[in-house]
């Protein structure tokens, strides 16, 4: 990694290891996340993308150096990592199904008021559904709640895991637009299988294979190269099916 990258990194990870149920799922992973825009974390199913994100947050046991905005966060428990300003939008949304939409959002407010206006502007639909149980929302609406929830507080970095998974094309566009708007202010580390979305949003990529980083670099260059086929199993320049 170049010096310039170092200077402008919001998050830098060195020698990260993590295991789940006694199995090593993240092995000696090192990368940096730029302090603007979207950095995509890519790789085939099961390579350890979700595990890497969970390791950063301390949701699963990890070792290694994790530096966020100049201070070390690798010994902190999950809630402290998040309190430092790292927001998490998990794979499969994980909204609280028995709580209302409003309660889901209120839970995420750590200070006094929260960013109501931002959330209302990005997701006007949620306002009408404030009293609805989140478990009865459609997949797309649940994804909106998961995103809105993390935006209730000011964040210095967002970790977003497959936000378009299982969504209809129109909703994928909506989520992409929302993320684009968010990324103008807040850097995002995005796990995403839909390469069109990656192309739309990301300026750079980190590619995992077998729990290790195998490539980092410019997003367009990567997506237009043969490496896409080698590491993701799809043909260069084509959209993910």
């Amino acid at each position: 990694m170049s010096e310039q990258q170092q200077d402008t990194a919001v998050l830098s990870v060195r020698g990260l290891f993590a295991s789940v149920a006694g199995q090593q799922v993240v092995e000696d992973v090192s990368f940096t996340v730029a302090d603007t825009g979207v950095t995509a974390l890519l790789g085939r199913n099961g390579v350890g993308k979700t595990s890497t994100i969970k390791a950063l947050l301390g949701i699963i046991d990890r070792t290694g150096e994790i530096t966020y905005r100049g201070s070390s966060i690798d010994k902190l428990p999950t809630h402290r990592v998040v309190q430092r300003g790292i927001g998490y939008v998990p794979e499969d949304r994980e909204v609280f199904g028995s709580l209302t939409v409003e309660e889901n959002l209120r839970l995420a407010i750590l200070g006094d008021s929260g960013n109501r206006e931002t959330v209302d502007r990005l997701f006007p639909e949620l306002r009408q559904r404030a009293k609805q149980q989140a478990g009865t929302l459609s997949g797309g609406q649940q994804q909106m709640v998961a995103l809105a929830r993390v935006l209730m507080e000011q964040r210095g970095l967002l970790l977003v895991d497959e936000p378009t998974k299982g969504l209809a094309p129109r909703i994928v566009t909506e989520v992409t637009e929302a993320l684009k708007a968010v990324a103008e202010k807040t850097p995002v580390l995005l796990v995403e299988q839909n390469l069109q979305v990656v192309r739309d949003l990301a300026h750079s990529v980190i590619v995992l294979s077998g729990g290790r980083v195998v490539h980092t670099g410019d997003a367009r260059e990567f997506l237009d190269s043969d490496l896409v086929h080698r590491y993701l199993g799809v043909t260069a320049g084509k959209d993910d099916a």
Partner: peptide, 21 residues
């Protein structure tokens, strides 16, 4: 009360919202 109801459903996600459960 809200934290407890949410925690009964998914404790990990409560901590991932920055709450000391």
């Amino acid at each position: 009360g809200l934290i407890i109801r949410a925690g009964v459903e998914n404790r990990t996600m409560v901590t991932a919202l920055g709450i000391d459960v």
